[in-house]
Write a protein that binds this DNA or RNA. Structure first.
Length: 845
RNA sequence: GCGGGUGUGGCGGAAUUGGCAGACGCGCAGGAUUCAGAAUCCUGUGACCGCGAGGUCAUGUGGGUUCAACUCCCACCAUCCGCACCA
């Protein structure tokens, strides 16, 4: 091949691959299945981003590698195009979401993803806004509803004033909306929730058995936020209540500090506030609560000074018997631990700040066991230590005291062990248009009724008034033909739920749909569910989208590649859903992804890419100019795939140079028929290195090894003597196979040239992508002669070539033949010799 | 504040897990080719001293362990990410 011409060969091969259905997997017949999945993208801009190209390329390389290692790889693709991200973009450009998403998905697929040369099986493409898809999203909602995992309840929820909808906790980042960065407000609204909290421990425990990056596991652990402690009852001491034995419950992780509780604080939203406020303090407390409720959570957290007001009431410390004042303060969260806190100012930073503001007594009850200087440096000691000022528990270690105090409380019936979680239920209602309608109706007589499964999907009505209203109601609420319906139970008039599902529900189950999806629809299955773990008996026959044989063959997903930013969003929701599916008896496993790999992010010229900086990398331009192979390989060469890298335009030239050199080296006239030991060693070493690196997602070093191989063999003895730059046939085949996952087009072209194949007779078996991955022979890797490093006092003083495996005495002899070494050894006495066979000898003098 | 990560030439990054620091690539410099440029090829490229052979210093900073430290330990600094009044 004279010239490296990607613009000619790349489209040619993509066309042939499509025509021969090279990447279509036989879902039913596959014997050695491997489900390789990449987080499907959501179109939220005119074109695909370079981040999509980067992430998808790494996943594709993994899939190709597994295929060449004998697995039947299923690598589907689709679009997460239902939901707020796409809708926000539609609002921005003033287009109807349906029309826009059809256009964008087609463009992303046909003009962009297909040009990357990925081995996707597009015959199973999924789009989450297809009625055939969201029918099953609604079906999932109904299943969870039926078994008590979905419920409508009034709660304090996050409201994004810009997106005009509520959001789940996970979709609020540092007090701002995940999508538009507006500051989130809190509102008391009746919304639909999925009970993910029921699975808190299951989600936590399973982290120990899945092969996921530690980073993601830690984020999930922190998000679930399991705390072990106690619930303690504080009796109310107040003239208004003197006759009743009422008490307030608080949660604490430190019951050992109970003797140090000198005050009591309620969250402004707590129902106790009204009950406990004495008449003379009603006005002041009312004002404070009103003000607190008007602040966003972020504003509350950013206040420098702790604020609050006295309610006029007292509660009794259950161990010391002291009456302690009850305050209302906005530093106490209503959603956590019952919205009340016992104030221990000596051992909690926040309580200490509050006590200082209100001149409340500080009683030290834990004495630090560490040195005096440590104690002085810390105002508030939150660590473990010895109990003081704590009655019969004095002198006891705080860890032990914790248990003893809990036992005592339990015996007295005023407390018990308890576990609290930071995790809250998943709010899935959205007051938006572009989502799956929640399949529930409200009947005047029967109340809340689910839509019968046979009536699914509840179609999203077409309308021109689809923009968010800001009235706490979805635009669907204004469409009478949609809202008004009849109750299928009593036949009376009823109204539909008008909110739609969170888009994270759409994406929480898409990988179940891929294998079941063919010809744009899910092939449903009629099955009797029998293994239901949730107590309700299930005896009906019903349609469901999971065909047992396909499920068993393809799921769980073998490898999932995606961004770490979804750690507590998609990755948490989808684990929850899988666990729920198992408990519902519709699948037989509880983790969706056996392995997950989090890719890094790319920067441009050292800076984060952003429109304002004008440093956006548009993949199309680079593919056009350099070809997909060079672009792919370059992206993977930037840095470790898990860490990302920095994109510079000039770097691509180097990759084109490399691919051109590969063409030269593979297609020149073959001169070296039998390879020297050195050349063989080089080849086997490269196979080993590339195999291990690709297996470990170390794509950058795998490419470096291939480059090194080309460079070194060009300079080897054979080539120098014949003044030629070619590989032997064996080397050429191995090179093409090793490079094939990175540069699929050019390797296919060269493979066909090498084998003199006729393009018209191209089949799977003739494709380089269906060849067996090369194996290396360790016997060839081992060198007869090795370079031994000679050190004197740990400093490099010389190198000698020695036979591999010589003993220390011989090594010593060789080493001392080196002049430079002798110079440093002169007039010195050898105290010690350290010998590392085949590597190094060090004389200590 | 808490949790996790990272820190190596002009730049992106290597280093078989304690054993030759800087693989590979970009960039740069010199040379070949060319009327000239582009492209391509060859050579060089951490810093400092030296004409040279060679030497000294170098992996964020300071200490330590070791014959030997980018790698292990302690302290600190910088930076990125996540969480953030979770009792």
């Amino acid at each position: 091949m004279e010239k490296y011409n990607p613009s000619q060969i790349e489209p040619k091969w993509r066309k042939l691959w499509a025509e021969t259905k090279l990447y279509q997997t036989d879902i039913k017949a596959a014997k050695n299945p491997y489900y390789n999945l990449w987080m499907f993208p959501y179109p939220s801009g005119a074109r695909m981003h370079v981040g999509h190209a980067y992430a998808s390329t790494g996943a594709d390389i993994h899939g190709r590698f597994m295929r060449m290692n004998g697995r039947e790889v299923f690598q589907p693709m689709g679009f997460d195009a239902f939901g707020i991200h796409g809708e926000n973009y539609a609002i921005k450009v003033g287009r109807h979401p349906k029309e826009l998403m059809d256009e964008l998905c087609d463009r992303y697929r046909d003009e962009q993803f297909k040009r990357m040369g990925h081995g996707y099986d597009w015959s199973h493409e999924v789009r989450t806004y297809d009625a055939d898809y969201y029918k099953w999203t609604q079906w999932i909602f109904l299943k969870l509803y039926k078994y008590g995992l979905a419920e409508r309840k009034k709660a304090s929820v996050n409201w994004c004033p810009s997106c005009k909808t509520v959001l789940a906790d996970e979709q609020v980042l540092c007090g701002s909306c995940e999508r538009c960065e507006a500051i989130v407000e809190s509102k008391e609204l009746k919304q639909w929730f999925f009970k993910i909290t029921k699975y808190a421990d299951h989600l936590l425990d399973n982290l120990q058995v899945i092969n996921w990056p530690q980073k993601i596991k830690v984020m999930q652990i922190n998000w679930i936020g399991r705390s072990e402690g106690a619930k303690i009852n504080f009796p109310i001491f107040n003239s208004q209540f003197s006759n009743k034995k009422e008490f307030i419950e608080v949660f604490t992780t430190r019951p050992d500090t109970l003797f140090g509780a000198t005050f009591f604080v309620l969250a402004p939203e707590s129902e106790w506030v009204d009950k406990l406020t004495t008449n003379d303090r009603k006005r002041e407390v009312g004002n404070y609560v009103r003000r607190a409720k008007s602040l966003t959570m972020q504003q509350r957290a950013q206040q420098k000074e702790k604020t609050g007001v006295f309610t006029g009431s007292y509660v009794v410390n259950p161990v010391s018997g002291e009456e302690i004042p009850v305050y209302v303060a906005d530093y106490v969260l209503f959603e956590y631990g019952g919205g009340a806190v016992m104030g221990v100012p000596a051992h909690d930073q926040r309580d200490h700040e509050f006590a200082r503001s209100f001149d409340l007594p500080v009683v030290e009850v834990i004495s630090s066991d560490s040195s005096v200087s440590d104690q002085i440096s810390q105002e508030v000691y939150a660590g473990e230590g010895t109990l003081i000022n704590s009655g019969q528990f004095n002198g006891m270690n705080s860890v032990e005291a914790r248990k003893k105090i809990m036992t005592m409380l339990e015996e007295k019936g005023c407390g018990k062990e308890d576990v609290q979680y930071k995790l809250r239920d998943w709010c899935i209602s959205r007051q938006r248009y572009w989502g799956a309608p929640i399949p529930i109706i409200y009947c005047e007589k029967c109340g809340e009724v689910s839509v019968p499964e046979g009536e699914l999907p509840v179609l999203l009505p077409d309308t021109e008034d689809w923009r968010p209203t800001g009235t706490e109601e979805s635009p669907l609420a204004a469409i009478e033909g949609f809202v008004n319906t009849t109750c299928h139970q009593c036949g009376g008039s009823a109204k539909r739920e008008t909110d739609v599902c969170d888009t994270f529900l759409d994406s929480a189950w898409y990988y179940y749909a891929y294998p079941a999806y063919a010809g744009q629809r899910i092939i449903a299955n009629r099955e009797r569910i029998t293994t239901n773990k949730i107590s309700l008996p299930v005896d009906e026959m019903e349609d469901y989208p999971f065909q047992p044989d396909i499920l068993k063959k393809w799921l769980p997903v073998d490898m999932y590649v995606g961004g770490a930013e979804h750690a507590v969003l998609h990755l948490m929701y989808t684990r929850f859903l899988t666990m729920a599916f198992q408990d519902l008896g519709i699948i037989g496993f509880d983790e969706p992804f056996e392995r997950f790999f989090a890719h890094g992010l790319i920067t441009k010229d050292g800076a984060k890419m952003s429109k304002s900086k004008g440093n956006i990398v548009n993949p199309d331009e680079y593919i056009e100019k350099y070809g997909a192979d060079a672009f792919r390989t370059y992206l993977m060469f930037l840095g470790p795939y898990g860490a990302g890298g920095d994109f510079t335009d000039s770097g691509l030239n180097g990759m084109v140079r490399f691919l051109r050199r590969v063409c030269e080296v593979v297609c020149g006239d073959v001169k070296a028929e039998s390879l020297s030991k050195e050349r063989l060693r080089l080849m086997h070493r490269t196979v080993k290195k590339v195999t291990e690196d690709v297996r470990d997602f170390s794509f950058n070093t795998a490419i470096a090894a291939l480059m090194e191989w080309v460079k070194k063999s060009q300079k080897s003895e054979e080539n120098r003597s014949v003044e030629d730059n070619t590989f032997s046939r064996e080397e050429a085949e191995v090179m093409l196979k090793l490079l094939a996952p990175f540069a699929p087009h050019i390797t296919e072209e060269l493979w066909q040239l090498l084998n003199g194949s006729d393009v018209k007779q191209f089949t799977k078996h003739r494709s380089v992508h269906f060849q067996d991955w090369p194996v290396y022979d360790p016997a060839f890797i081992k060198a007869k002669e090795v370079t031994m490093v000679v050190q004197v006092n740990g400093k490099l003083r010389g190198k000698v070539e020695v036979l591999s495996g010589i003993d220390e005495g011989r090594a010593r002899e060789y080493a001392l033949q080196n002049e430079s070494v002798r110079k440093f050894m002169q007039n010195k006495k050898v105290k010690r010799v350290i010998y590392v066979p085949d590597k190094l000898i060090n004389f200590v003098v």
